Amino acid sequence: MPPYLSREEYFTAWSQWHGGTDPRSSPVVRGWLTLAHTLARPLAGLSPLVVTLVGLLVAAAAVGPAAAGGAWLLLAGALVGASGLLDSLDGALAIAGGRASRRGFVLDSAVDRLTEVAYAAAFWVAGAPGWLAVVFGALCWFPDYLRARAGQAGVEETGAISVWERPARVAVAGMSLVGAGVASVVGLHGLVVVLGAAAGAVLGAVGSIQLAVQLRRALG
């Protein structure tokens, strides 16, 4: 097995796999990846593919407790957070462990989009209007779609980190559901869910605009 990369080496390798985006430029992303790198070290022998699939199952499992409502929303939020952590863990295992591949990168990206469908579904069954849940989910997808299309158009550096990267999406979904679980004691869980989904939609719109402006410059 190749030697496990140091944190700085991991950041550099992560950047190479993500269109030149430097994770050090965002305290949130840097902290998120640092946590994943630290947790992955003692698990270096674990298959990244297994962690990827478990993360997808955990995200899907959040929909049931979200539909149950009440205190179950706390569990839904915790499962969303766990799925996000597993998503970062599989990347750390692959990249820092020297096992990253193009096939794994594409699979991980596809699973990320499926987990975001689960987050949107959790919002919906927890009480958010269907249209708002769809907007939230679409704006989770859109920035990565822009980056992928820009990469196909020959842009090597696919944009700096925006306000709406994976850690932010996981945090908004997870914290909103946990907050709704707490607010269910006084019957305000529906309001918290709607506000959480709306906040995610706003951040998604802002992040998409940030990225579109950056990519427009790169595309000339």
Rank of each mutant, 00 (worst) to 15 (best):
L146Q: 12
G81Q: 12
A68S: 11
R147H: 03
S162I: 01
G97L: 03
A160I: 03
L219K: 12
G84Q: 15
V117K: 05
A183F: 10
C140W: 00
G64W: 10
A121M: 12
L75A: 13
W32L: 06
S26C: 03
R41N: 08
L75R: 04
W164K: 03
A60P: 07
W124K: 06
P2E: 15
A44S: 14
S47D: 13
A180Y: 00
G69M: 05
G20N: 10
E9N: 05
A40G: 15
G31L: 10
V202Q: 05
G19Y: 05
G137I: 00
V182K: 06
S25G: 02
P23D: 10
G64C: 09
A60C: 12
V54F: 01
D22V: 10
V134A: 15
L177P: 00
R217W: 01
A126G: 08
W17I: 07
Q210L: 09
L85C: 06
T52L: 08
W14E: 08
A92T: 06
G104I: 04
G81V: 03
L211K: 03
R41A: 11
A71K: 09
G104N: 08
L79M: 09
V182G: 03
W141K: 15
A138V: 09
E9M: 11
F105I: 07
P48G: 11
W72M: 09
L93D: 01
G20H: 02
E157R: 15
V192H: 00
A96C: 13
V213Y: 05
T52M: 15
L43C: 14
W32V: 01
R103W: 07
A66E: 03
F136M: 08
D108Q: 14
G70T: 11
L107T: 13
F123C: 13
A201P: 04
G179C: 11
A110P: 00
G220V: 02
A148K: 12
R103M: 12
Q152H: 12
A199F: 07
F142N: 06
L85A: 07
L5Y: 07
S101W: 12
G179F: 05
A66N: 02
A197V: 04
V155C: 06
G55R: 08
V111N: 12
I209G: 10
A212N: 02
T34S: 13
L46K: 06
L93A: 04
R7T: 08
L89A: 15
G137A: 03
R103E: 15
G19T: 02
D108K: 12
V202K: 10
A183C: 14
A121S: 14
E165P: 09
A171N: 00
R217K: 15
A171Y: 00
L203M: 13
V135H: 07
Q214K: 06
L33A: 00
A78P: 05
A138T: 01
P143A: 13
G181K: 04
Q152T: 04
E9Q: 14
A121Q: 01
R113A: 13
